[in-house]
Design a binder for these strands. Structure first.
Lengths: 359, 359
DNA sequence: TTGAAAGCGTTACCAC
DNA sequence: GTGGTAACGCTTTCAA
C-alpha cells in the first residue's frame, strides 16, 4: 500500500537467485573509510592487536562500526582451508528428530561446547533409507561430522563405512563395536550395563516372565539394553522367560495398543520398555487392564529424563548422561582437529539406575 | 597394536591448526584425471547436463567417483555470494535449549524443510544476556536468520533491533508485536487465544480464585497466555481473582516447591500453569497436599505435546503446531531469499484446546 | 607498523 | 560443447 518512505536505489537487476540481495560491505570498504589497507583491517578483525598501532586500530574499529561490517566467513574458510564447523546427521524415521530427549540433550551439549570454541554447528535429520543423500554429506562444508545412526546393524555399518569414505573425522554415538579407524571415534553410554542394572533390580521381585517392549526399528541402544537384560537372567535365573513385543513406532498410541494386545493374551510379571515414554504407554495399558503397578506387574524404562516424574507410580529408569556425551564429543572433535589424533577412540559413559514406584 | 596395512605418505607438517588435515581433492584434480577442463567438471557437478556431452559427463562422473570428490561449499558460497544456509539463534537460560518440546519441534520442522531445499541449518543456543556475542551473529555465514527470543519485552526488543541491524532477513518466533520492517517477519502461535480458550473452559466450573504459575524469565508466549486468561475473566467474571506464582526456573523441582509453598498459604480453585511440564509439577504439589484433581482443584497447561498423556489425571492443555511453524518459517525465508519479499509479514497459527481429566 | 600481491576452489562470462 | 580467464573476500607471505 503506502510506499516506504525512503526509496533505496535499486541495484541493477542481479542475475538469478541473488536478486534484491544488497551488496555486502567488505574489508575493502572498511579499509577505504579508515584510510588504511585491507591487511590492517584484517589484523584488527583477527585481534592481532600487537601488530596494530592503537590509533590505527581505533580508526578501523570506528569504520567497522560505522559500516556495520561483519566478516564473510566463507571467504575466510576458503582461504584458511578450515571450516570451523561441525556437521551432525541424525538418522531417524520420526521427522521431529530433535524431539527425542536423548538427542535433544546430546545436540544441546555438543552445540554449546562448539559455540564456546567458536565452531559452528550444522544439523540435519534424515530418514535412514536416504542417509547417503543428506546434503550435509554431499558437499564439504564441515571439518568433521557427528552421527547418530539407527536401524539394523548391517545398515548402520553401511552408513558408517560411507562416513569413513568421506575422509573426515567422525564421532559416532551409541555405536558399540569398537573402532580403530584413525578417523572415527565412538561415544556411547553403557546401555549393556543399563540392561544389567534393570535385570539385577528386577530379580529381587522374582519374576517368572518378562515382556520386553521395543520398537521394530533398531536402535543400537535398544539392542544393548535387551542384551544386558537377557544376559543377567540367562546367567542367574535361566528359568525366567523373556519375550518381546515389537512395536511399529515409538508413538504413545502404538505402544499402548501393542501392549494391550499382548496383555490380552498373556500377562507377564514385569514389563521392561526400551524407553521411558514407551514405559509410560505400557503403564496406561496395564491400568486399563486393571493391573496394579507395581503389585500385579512391574514396569521399568530407560533413558530417564523427565517422563519418569510424571507417571503414577513414578518410573524406575536408568539415567542417561546425554548432555555430557554431546559436550564430550565436541571436545574429542576439536582436539582431533587441532592435534591430528583423537585423544580417545571409544568412550563409554556410565549410567545409573533410578528406582521409582513402578517396580 | 598391529600397524594398519597401508602406510599413507605423511603430508609435510602443515602450519598451525590445519596440521594432519589431508589436502582435499578439488575440481582441478577431477579435471586432470578426466582429461577435461575445470569448467566441464563444474558443469557436471552443477547438473548443467544439457551443456555436457554424455560421453564427457561419464568420464567426469567416473573421475569424481574414483577420487571421492565432493565440492567445497565455502568456495561456491564465496563465488555465488550466497550461503544457502539459515542460522537459528535460541536465547534460553537452560543450557539444554533444544530440550524444550516446542523448540525441538520447531527446529525439526525448519531443518527438514530447509534440507529439502538444499539449505543448511546452523544452530546456536545462547543465554539472553550474551545474545549479541553469539558467533552466528558476529560473522556473516548465513543468508538469513531465525530467532527464538526470551526475556522481558525490553530485552527482546533490543535483541530484535540488533538482528535488524545485521541487514539480513530474519524470522522471529513468538514475537507478537507486528512488524513492517522489510527484513523481518514474525511467526507465532495464537497464545493470546490459547489463554482465552483455557479461560472459557475454566469458567464453566465457576472458580473464584485462580493461580497462574509462570517462570520468572519472561517468554513472550507466557505473557500472552496470561493476558488472554485475564482478559476473559475481566470481561466476563470480574469477581474472579487471578494471582501469580513466579518460579525461578521451569525445572520440575522448583515448580513443585513453589506451588507447594503457595498452597500452604492459600488454595485456589484452579491452577493454570504456563506449560504442561509446570502443570505436571503443580499436580504433584496438589497430590502431596491431599487435593483431588479435578474435584478439589483443577489444573491446566499449555503447549501440549506428550506430557499431558503421562499425568493422572491427564492434563487439559492447548495443542501447539510447533513443527508446522518451523516448516512455514523455512518457506517464508526461502521465498524471501528468492523473491526479495516475504510473502507474509506476520503469521499467527491457530491452537486448539484439548480437554483432559485435570479440569 | 603497514601494505602489495598471490591464491584458496568455485562459477560467470565469453571466446572458441 | 568446451575451456580460458577473472573474480568472489579473505589471509599468508614478504617487502617496505
Amino acid at each position: 500500500m503506502a510506499s516506504q518512505g525512503k526509496q533505496k536505489s535499486q541495484p541493477e537487476a542481479a542475475p538469478g537467485a541473488g536478486m534484491n540481495r544488497p551488496k555486502r560491505t567488505t574489508m575493502h570498504d572498511v579499509a577505504r573509510l579508515a584510510g588504511v589497507s585491507v591487511m590492517t583491517v584484517s589484523n584488527v578483525v583477527r585481534r592481532q592487536n600487537q601488530t596494530v598501532k592503537l590509533e590505527t586500530r581505533r580508526k578501523v574499529e570506528d569504520a567497522i562500526a560505522r559500516l556495520n561490517y561483519r566478516p564473510n566467513i566463507s571467504a575466510r574458510r576458503l582461504r584458511v582451508a578450515e571450516e570451523y564447523s561441525i556437521g551432525v546427521v541424525v538418522t531417524d524415521s520420526d521427522p521431529a528428530f530433535l524431539n527425542d530427549p536423548f538427542i535433544s540433550r546430546l545436540v544441546s551439549g555438543l552445540s554449546n561446547y562448539l559455540s564456546n570454541q567458536d565452531y559452528t554447528l550444522d544439523i540435519q535429520g534424515v530418514p535412514p533409507e536416504r542417509f547417503e543423500s543428506a546434503t550435509i554429506l554431499k558437499k564439504v562444508g564441515n571439518d568433521a561430522l557427528c552421527a547418530i545412526l539407527c536401524g539394523p546393524k548391517a545398515l548402520r555399518r553401511q552408513h558408517l563405512e560411507y562416513l569413513q569414505s568421506l575422509g573426515q573425522p567422525v564421532v559416532v554415538f551409541q555405536e558399540t563395536s569398537k573402532t580403530t579407524a584413525r578417523n572415527v571415534a565412538t561415544v556411547a553410554q553403557d546401555d549393556l550395563g543399563a540392561g544389567r542394572l534393570v535385570a539385577e533390580h528386577l530379580r529381587r521381585s522374582q519374576p517368572r516372565a518378562i515382556l520386553f517392549v521395543r520398537p521394530t526399528l533398531d536402535w543400537p541402544a535398544v539392542e544393548q539394553r535387551e542384551k544386558g537384560l537377557r544376559a543377567v537372567f540367562e546367567a542367574e535365573d535361566p528359568g525366567v522367560e523373556i519375550f518381546n513385543s515389537l512395536v511399529p513406532s515409538e508413538g504413545y498410541e502404538d505402544v499402548r495398543a501393542a501392549v494391550a494386545a499382548q496383555l490380552a493374551q498373556r500377562t507377564p510379571d514385569a514389563i521392561v520398555a526400551a524407553t521411558d515414554s514407551m514405559a509410560a504407554a505400557a503403564m496406561e495399558a496395564c491400568e486399563a487392564e486393571g493391573l496394579k503397578v507395581p503389585d500385579d506387574i512391574t514396569i521399568t524404562g530407560f533413558n530417564g529424563f523427565d517422563v519418569w516424574r510424571y507417571t503414577r507410580p513414578t518410573l524406575t529408569t536408568v539415567l542417561s548422561p546425554a548432555y555430557e556425551m554431546g559436550q564430550y564429543a565436541g571436545e574429542l572433535l576439536v582436539s582431533r582437529l587441532r592435534t591430528g589424533e583423537f585423544p580417545k577412540r571409544n568412550t563409554i559413559f556410565p549410567v545409573a539406575l533410578q528406582v521409582g514406584g513402578s517396580s
